[in-house]
Design a protein around this nucleic acid. Sequence first.
DNA 1: TTGAAAGCGCTACCAA
DNA 2: TTGGTAGCGCTTTCAA
Lengths: 338, 338
Amino acid sequence: MESKNLTIQDVAKRANVSVATVSRVINNSSLVREATRSKVLEVIETLGYSPNFLGRDLRRDQTMRILLLTPSLIWPIMLDLFRGIDDAAQRHGYSVIAAPTTNSKKKEQELIAMLKNRFVDGLIVIGSTLSPQELDDLGKQYSLVQCSEWKETKYTSIVSIDDKKAGYDAISYLIKSGHKRIAMIGSKNSGSALLRLQGYQEAIAKAGLKFDESLVKFGDFTYEDGLCLTKDLLKLEDKPTAIFCINDVVAVGCVNALKKNGIRVPDEVAVVGFDDTKEALMSIPEITTIAQPKYELGYRTFELLINQMNQEGSNYQNITLEHNLILRGSTVNIDIKE
Amino acid sequence: MESKNLTIQDVAKRANVSVATVSRVINNSSLVREATRSKVLEVIETLGYSPNFLGRDLRRDQTMRILLLTPSLIWPIMLDLFRGIDDAAQRHGYSVIAAPTTNSKKKEQELIAMLKNRFVDGLIVIGSTLSPQELDDLGKQYSLVQCSEWKETKYTSIVSIDDKKAGYDAISYLIKSGHKRIAMIGSKNSGSALLRLQGYQEAIAKAGLKFDESLVKFGDFTYEDGLCLTKDLLKLEDKPTAIFCINDVVAVGCVNALKKNGIRVPDEVAVVGFDDTKEALMSIPEITTIAQPKYELGYRTFELLINQMNQEGSNYQNITLEHNLILRGSTVNIDIKE
DNA sequence: TTGAAAGCGCTACCAA
DNA sequence: TTGGTAGCGCTTTCAA
């Protein structure tokens, strides 16, 4: 199974040149005679030689690799986030590797060790169990940017939308549509979710409606939570006429719970989701949602990160991108084209 | 941003011991006096030293890391597959890192380079654009196992279910339920999908039904394909009474298309999905599906991989695990508990 | 139980 | 345009 473990020495010997020259060829140095270059390349080809990056990276003290740290890689928003990060990275010659922590402290530490142990040059964090203090400690010593799902820190850069305003906008829209009894299915396990709740409360207050705690439920971003918590809401004396869900998957659960109870969407109850992921389209009716500029969030995150990696001095920035509301059948009666 | 770049030398100096001793402490060698050990550990703590793994791995010619190569990390089956791989890896002291190729040849080559460049010790491939020949070339030289979504090769190990039999079982079940006009929404972009189609054909043949090409549609595993291709099926003169979908997401699209056309599921048309992912539950009715033992597939895959990494000689195995059919509302009228 | 030192594969400096 | 070589940080053998 072990490959032949060829080294730059083997190539040099075979090509009758020095290792320095081989190294130059590998790294596309311009100061190699064309004839020499092609000879070396030919030997590399024949031998099937691949340079050992451990040696290279050790010598250069740089890996051109970054790590994406996140509880789950299968989050619906992850695809576009990753594409944004990866495209930006590619542009600068960096590779992105990823690993899910599944919210395990141990796993998280193990991955952060990859940063400390010089296996990657920088870290992008999209949600973690790390405390703001821990994030700050890391941020002070290493290159680190938080993206989308973040915690308040002094020493890390952050790229995200304005979650509070997003919550505010969602609720304001529902209020404008005539709703007075608006529920929310949120989560306590996420900074962003809590901010969206603040937005909810502000919008309610501003409209002169009274805040009713029983209209706010907390779950964990899953379809099942959407299903169950909606059922809970339906048990209330004074039922909501609109429900704001923390993401689209929850919103699909919400819509399905309503339908199972014979409640018409959007006529009797309107539903708003979040993220504009493909799940928002997997329901009948489709889900009105707040869209995050996921690709751009990712792209800008890498740009901030490479800034930090290249700079000596510290330079922490917060970048806020615009969200927007996408209207679909779960809040408005739209003609369905078939 | 740069951390202080402490080395084992710094620790040695500060602790008044040799680097060899520090190394022994780091690696939990038993031949260090307890007093020495604690002194060294204290210095490590004070300084905040983390060993540079590039140096270590270069020296050891081993990284204790493997790479998971797959077109998309957000595939619904990926979560359990990854957990299985990761748990097995953890058990052996290995880390798993992942990267999506998004079916880009270039990205794929870049990631495979990580293997060739000694950045990881082994590779797990869950779907790729690599030809059997390319896979064989890699398999001959490096440690490589295919999992779940695979191609026929001589020189790689494979862990998967028997996809042909799975297709056969799904269709046989529908035939036993009385269906005679059975459609399939498959895909041409996947070996497993093609095998399931073979199973479909065999079951049809065995039951003495005639194979009707117009009942077989090809898409790309997406919700939209489920939606559109089902619409196509409904345009047929002689409509199907059952539809077998290549995965659960497609099946949800299928069910929704049927509902939008006023067709009752399962009374008028029955639907079967594949994979038993969470999407199968996100539909009304829930989707009858073929479950793969995803976690175990992942677990066994790593076990095969570590075998190869530890062995000198070649040792290619095919492991086939059992699938099973899960009955839900899309094929049977089940009392829905509320 | 500890230390000295060679060397993993590579890059990049200096000299030619 | 090329070669010689020091040294990146670490482990591990050998000797003490």
